[in-house]
Design a protein around this nucleic acid. Structure first.
Length: 109
DNA sequence: CTCTTGACTGAGG
DNA sequence: GCCTCAGCCAAGA
């Protein structure tokens, strides 16, 4: 692959697709894996453009495990529904047992 | 080239 | 533990 041809967004998508079923990760973790630890905002920005892609954006949350991006989904609780469908417990858009479902690409890969 | 926009994060009060 | 502030950096206009 020629990363030069892939924009920062594209790299984010590739990593997001690698997130295992029933797991979640944070924007900062993805950014860190891409070598841009301080570009966590860019990851979120990229997810904003992830619509139409095969990117499981619902598995990406902020470092607190809070579904900050839920507002960008169609329904009001769609994002939460998708995660709960994967066996993740969520209360008020806050992921429970975060440490158990957390997936760090820089450590797992 | 310059300016604005963010689905973020860490530090400080 | 919660709230606020500032730094961060890529993409689009």
């Amino acid at each position: 692959m020629k990363p030069e041809t892939l924009s920062f967004f594209d790299k984010v998508y590739e990593v997001a697709k690698l997130i295992p079923f029933g797991r979640v990760t944070s924007y900062g973790a993805i950014a860190n894996y891409l070598g841009a630890a301080r570009s966590a905002r860019m990851v979120g920005y990229a997810m904003n453009a992830s619509h139409g892609k095969d990117v499981p954006a619902h598995r990406v949350v902020n470092r607190k495990g809070l579904l900050t991006g839920k507002h960008h989904f169609d329904g009001t609780n769609l994002m939460q529904q998708l995660l709960e469908n994967e066996g993740i417990t969520i209360i008020d858009y806050q992921i429970q047992n975060l440490e158990k479902v957390y997936w760090d690409p820089s450590k797992e890969l």
